[in-house]
Design a protein around this nucleic acid. Structure first.
Lengths: 238, 238
DNA sequence: ATAAACCAGTGATGCGAATCACACACCGTT
DNA sequence: AACGGTGTGTGATTCGCATCACTGGTTTAT
């Protein structure tokens, strides 16, 4: 049995599939060693909250396995999902660096494992290892771009259809077949999709019907087949 | 006559009103010196573009005086303004750090001055001065939070009224009087306000009428008086 | 001084999506 | 098998705001 990703990242960069791309990959020997000393690993059940919006930052989490839902909620209870994080992602970094409350809630969508690095240990480490600081700046700027994409989607994409098409496209990028179609395993409920694209559950339901009728996609069970990226791209205009 | 802010930031931290808060304040002597060597100052007329969305990053701009409009445009020409930058702000940092194209267009809204720091010089400097790198990470994370606020506003605030109220509040924070009211000089057109809150010019016009009728604010010429923050806060729900 | 641009206000109209209100399918429980 | 719980499909209705179409005011240009 293969060790989960996040562990590799910290324990052994040789087999880490994200080599160089992620925060703690390919650091010097000393830095890696230090990282191993300050991290602590834990397993979380489905539904566990790694941290909650508004809490003061305790540290960062490096996700090893499982998926994490990042969301914010308004006073009246409206919720938006800003991102679904996967193995290798670093969670809570912005809050730690600027020492402001976590800006989102991070909830495990399925059981999984994560490495925790306490705030103080991390800041000390960044002082001692400039290379790590630079790496972190790049991670931050990547986070920023993700957020920026979100802004474009919310601000520029007019209709729910457009945002839905955009979402489907973002899913299909990972697994494109030779004929332009692609399969995705759908792990989200309509409700959750609605919270991602900023609309209602009912509208998402109707979008599914509509897109199926237009032959843009079809689904059997949890498996979702996206017919043609091209057709979807025509719908997206932002 | 007083020197404009941004110049102080670089030339003389003693008189800089943003001491410690901004990217290049309170660095060591050597770092400040280096900064002075690699920066170059220029004056820009109204309407000048510091950089344009999609261009590869040439460097960062530190704004000395004047206001800068940051915006993105979709393929069909819909535009959103993501931020109005003022003296002391650092523009283009994210693009430079991650070496991706500028994600926004930066346009001078009024004549002003800015210091330019080329990409290469900056990255070299960050290698040589770890303190500067850390400072920059914090700036990046501040940028991130700004972007995040934007997401909350766009995603959670339902109606244009709500977003408009939120905008007014953000303006009034700067200049609050004893009685809870505050004066702001309005430098934006209705069209531009519409592009900030993601609605149409006409709707903004109507919002002005509505808010005036409800005694939330009134305006004479370019001077805008916000009656009561409290009343506005009741409208805002996110 | 007189266009030519640009900006602001306001009515009439129509569409899209939120809302409300069900019915139904699918799960693991007891 | 009968049961709540949770997710899904779909109609009918309402309402907000984008859109279109003007008018009048204000600034800039030549």
């Amino acid at each position: 049995m293969r060790a989960p990703y996040g562990l590799n990242i910290l324990d052994n960069c040789q087999t880490c599939p994200f080599r160089g791309e992620h925060l703690f990959c390919n650091l010097g020997v000393l830095a890696s060693q230090r990282l191993n000393e300050i991290k602590s690993t834990a397993v979380y059940p489905k539904g566990a909250m790694l941290f909650i919006e508004g809490q003061m930052p305790r540290g960062v989490f490096v996700l090893c396995s499982g998926k994490v839902k990042l969301s914010t909620t308004s006073r009246e209870g409206k919720t938006i999902i800003t991102k679904i994080s996967e193995a290798g992602d670093v969670l809570g970094l912005n809050a730690v660096i600027s020492n402001r409350p976590y800006e989102v809630t991070a909830e495990m969508m399925e059981p999984g494992q994560a490495n925790f690095i306490p705030r103080d240990s991390l800041t000390l480490m960044l002082k001692d290892f400039p290379e790590a600081a630079m790496r972190m700046a790049q991670q931050l700027s990547r986070n920023y771009f993700t957020a920026y994409e979100e802004i474009r989607t919310l601000g520029l994409a007019a209709s729910p259809s457009e945002k839905f098409a955009k979402l489907l496209l973002s899913w299909s990028t990972k697994t494109t077949q030779t004929d332009g179609s692609s399969q995705v395993k759908l792990t989200l409920t309509h409700e959750e999709i609605a919270e991602i694209i900023g609309t209602t559950r009912e509208t998402v339901s109707r979008l599914f019907s509509e897109f199926k009728k237009k032959q843009l996609m079809h689904s059997k069970g949890a498996t979702l087949v996206i017919r043609s990226r091209l057709a979807l791209e025509k719908i997206v205009q932002s």
